[in-house]
Simulated scan of single mutants.
Amino acid sequence: MHEKPFRSIVKTISWRALGTMDTMIISYFITGNLKMAASIGAIELFTKMGLYYFHERAWSKSSFGIVKTTSDYQI
């Protein structure tokens, strides 16, 4: 099985949207400042999106934890 890079891009965007909302909520609780929370979330959005994409592509090249099934039945 092989994942195309576009799949990694879509997964990256959806995961970062969720993660950034979480970061902004936590930042708001810590700082009490909505503008500061949005700033932290905006910076984090781009840096972590890039990191996740390259992390995902590296894992897609790895065979770690993938088991190839073999069939005992042959014709």
Rank of each mutant, 00 (worst) to 15 (best):
Y73W: 12
K35P: 00
M49Q: 01
S27H: 04
I25H: 03
I13C: 05
D72V: 07
I30M: 09
V67R: 07
I9W: 08
R16L: 14
I75R: 11
A17L: 12
S8G: 15
A42Y: 03
E56T: 13
T47F: 14
F46H: 01
T70Y: 11
M21A: 14
S71E: 00
E44A: 11
M1R: 03
G65E: 02
A58F: 08
I43P: 00
K11P: 05
K4L: 13
I66N: 04
I75V: 13
R7H: 15
L18R: 06
K35A: 15
L34K: 12
G65W: 09
T69G: 08
N33C: 04
L51G: 13
A58M: 05
G32V: 05
Y52T: 05
I66F: 13
W15M: 14
D22Q: 14
T69A: 11
S27A: 15
E56G: 05
T70F: 14
G41A: 03
M49E: 00
T69W: 08
K4T: 11
E44Q: 11
M21W: 06
Y73D: 01
D22Y: 15
L34E: 00
M36Q: 07
I30N: 09
S27G: 11
T20K: 02
I66Y: 10
Y53E: 02
S63H: 08
S39W: 08
G50F: 11
T69E: 01
Y28S: 02
S62R: 04
V67S: 07
A58H: 08
Y53P: 04
Y52L: 11
T23K: 08
I26P: 01
S8C: 15
L45Q: 01
Y53Q: 02
L45A: 08
F6I: 12
L34A: 14
Q74N: 07
K11V: 12
K11M: 12
S60M: 09
M49A: 15
L45M: 06
G32T: 03
G32Y: 04
V10Y: 10
G19W: 11
K61V: 05
A37T: 01
S62V: 01
K4R: 13
A37G: 03
V67I: 12
N33Y: 06
I9R: 01
G65I: 06
L34Y: 13
I9D: 01
K61A: 15
T31G: 10
Y73N: 05
W59F: 15
I43G: 13
I26H: 10
L45H: 06
K68A: 11
L51I: 07
S63R: 08
I75Q: 07
Y28M: 03
M24W: 05
G41W: 05
K35W: 14
K68S: 10
T70V: 12
W59E: 10
I40V: 15
F29M: 07
H55N: 14
Y73G: 10
E56R: 12
E56L: 12
V67G: 03
K35T: 14
D72Q: 06
G65R: 11
L18V: 13
G32N: 02
I25N: 02
Y52S: 07
S71L: 06
D72H: 09
M49T: 06
K48S: 13
H55F: 15
L34T: 07
Y53I: 04
K68P: 02
S14A: 05
G32L: 04
F64G: 01
H55A: 14
T69Y: 13
T47Y: 09
E44M: 08
K35Y: 15
D72N: 08
T69D: 01
L18E: 00
